[in-house]
Simulated scan of single mutants.
Amino acid sequence: MTAFRTPQVVLFSPDVERAAAFYAALGFAEVFRTPADGPPIHVDVELGGYRLGLASERSTRDDHGLEPVVAGQRAAVVLWCDDVEAAYRRLQDAGARPVYPPAPWLGRLRIAWVEDPDGHLVQAVQHLADG
C-alpha cells in the first residue's frame, strides 16, 4: 500500500510573485520556483516545516485543465503566534486586509482574521495563559 507524506496546501493566485512576496514578509522562506527565470507559475514557501504552494490561476487552467475557484473565502492559512494584536498589525503592514480584529474565542484562544492580497483568509491564533 502506498503511504502518503508531506501534505501541503496550494493556493491559487492571479499574481504568484505578489503572493510569494506577501508570505515572505511574514517569515516564509521560498523553497521552490518554476520557471527559474521570468514570472513564476508556481512558488512554494515554507514556515516551521509547513509548505504552502502558490500556483498561477492561468497555469492551473492551461496546464492542468482545471477550473480553480478564485473568489471568496475558500481557504484559511492559520498562523499560531504569541501576540495576536502584534500579528494582526504585522499582517496588515505586509498588505493584508483586516476582516475581524483580535478577540477571545472558546475561552482559551485569541484570534484575528485578515485576507491576503488574493483574498485568502489568514487567521492569527494565540493560546491564552488562563485557557
Rank of each mutant, 00 (worst) to 15 (best):
H42Y: 15
V70Y: 00
A103H: 12
A55W: 13
V70M: 09
A21P: 03
A71Q: 14
D37Y: 04
A36M: 15
D62K: 06
C81N: 12
R89I: 00
V45G: 08
P14I: 00
Q126W: 02
T60V: 07
V78E: 10
V16G: 01
V77G: 03
F32H: 11
R108P: 06
I111W: 08
P98S: 09
G72W: 00
D130A: 15
W113P: 00
E57S: 07
C81Q: 06
A124C: 11
T34F: 14
R97Q: 11
L66C: 10
E17I: 07
A21I: 10
W80Q: 14
D37K: 12
G49H: 10
L109Q: 11
G49L: 03
A75L: 05
R108F: 11
T34H: 13
R51K: 15
A124D: 04
L52F: 03
G48V: 12
L109P: 00
A96L: 09
A75C: 11
G65N: 03
A96S: 08
Y88L: 04
G72A: 07
T60G: 14
A96N: 02
V125R: 03
P117M: 06
E115V: 02
R33D: 01
A129C: 09
Y50R: 09
L128F: 07
D130V: 11
V78W: 05
T60I: 08
